[in-house]
Measured scan of single mutants.
Amino acid sequence: TGQSYENMVTEIMSMGYEREQVIAALRASFNNPDRAVEYLLMGIP
Rank of each mutant, 00 (worst) to 15 (best):
T1S: 07
T1D: 03
T1Y: 04
T1M: 13
G2P: 13
G2C: 11
G2T: 14
G2S: 11
G2D: 13
Q3F: 15
Q3L: 10
Q3I: 13
Q3C: 13
S4A: 09
S4W: 06
Y5H: 08
Y5C: 09
Y5S: 09
Y5A: 07
Y5Q: 08
Y5F: 13
Y5M: 11
Y5P: 06
E6S: 07
E6D: 04
E6H: 05
N7P: 06
N7Y: 09
N7F: 07
N7T: 07
N7K: 12
M8S: 07
M8F: 09
M8G: 02
M8K: 09
M8H: 10
M8V: 05
M8A: 04
V9E: 04
V9S: 00
V9N: 00
V9M: 02
V9Q: 02
V9K: 01
V9G: 00
V9W: 00
V9P: 00
E11V: 03
E11Q: 07
E11I: 04
E11S: 10
I12N: 07
I12P: 01
M13I: 08
M13W: 00
M13V: 05
Y17W: 10
Y17S: 01
Y17C: 01
Y17V: 02
Y17T: 01
E18Q: 11
E18R: 10
E18G: 11
R19T: 01
R19S: 03
R19L: 02
R19D: 03
R19N: 03
E20Y: 02
E20I: 05
E20G: 10
E20V: 06
E20H: 10
Q21D: 12
Q21L: 07
V22Y: 00
V22G: 02
V22C: 05
V22E: 02
V22P: 00
I23Y: 06
I23G: 07
I23M: 06
I23V: 12
I23E: 14
I23R: 10
A24T: 13
A24W: 07
A24M: 07
A24N: 09
A24S: 12
A24P: 06
A24C: 09
A24E: 13
A25Q: 01
A25Y: 00
L26V: 02
L26A: 01
L26S: 01
L26Y: 03
R27I: 04
R27S: 12
R27T: 14
R27W: 03
R27Y: 08
R27P: 02
A28K: 09
A28T: 11
S29N: 14
S29D: 03
S29R: 05
S29G: 09
S29C: 09
S29P: 02
S29T: 13
F30D: 14
F30W: 08
N31R: 04
N31W: 08
N31F: 08
N31V: 03
N31S: 07
N32G: 02
N32P: 01
N32M: 11
N32E: 12
N32L: 03
N32Q: 10
N32H: 05
N32S: 09
P33R: 15
P33D: 01
P33L: 08
P33N: 02
P33K: 14
D34M: 10
D34Q: 14
R35P: 00
R35A: 13
R35M: 10
R35V: 12
R35Q: 13
R35T: 13
A36M: 00
A36F: 01
V37K: 15
V37P: 04
V37Y: 09
V37E: 04
V37M: 14
V37Q: 12
E38S: 05
E38W: 07
E38M: 05
E38H: 04
E38G: 06
E38T: 05
Y39C: 09
Y39P: 02
Y39H: 08
Y39F: 14
L40Y: 09
L40K: 00
L40Q: 01
L41R: 15
L41M: 15
L41N: 03
L41H: 04
L41W: 05
M42D: 15
M42R: 14
M42Q: 14
M42C: 09
M42A: 14
G43H: 07
G43F: 03
G43C: 06
G43T: 14
G43P: 08
G43L: 06
I44S: 14
I44F: 09
I44M: 14
I44W: 04
I44C: 12
I44P: 15
P45H: 12
P45A: 14
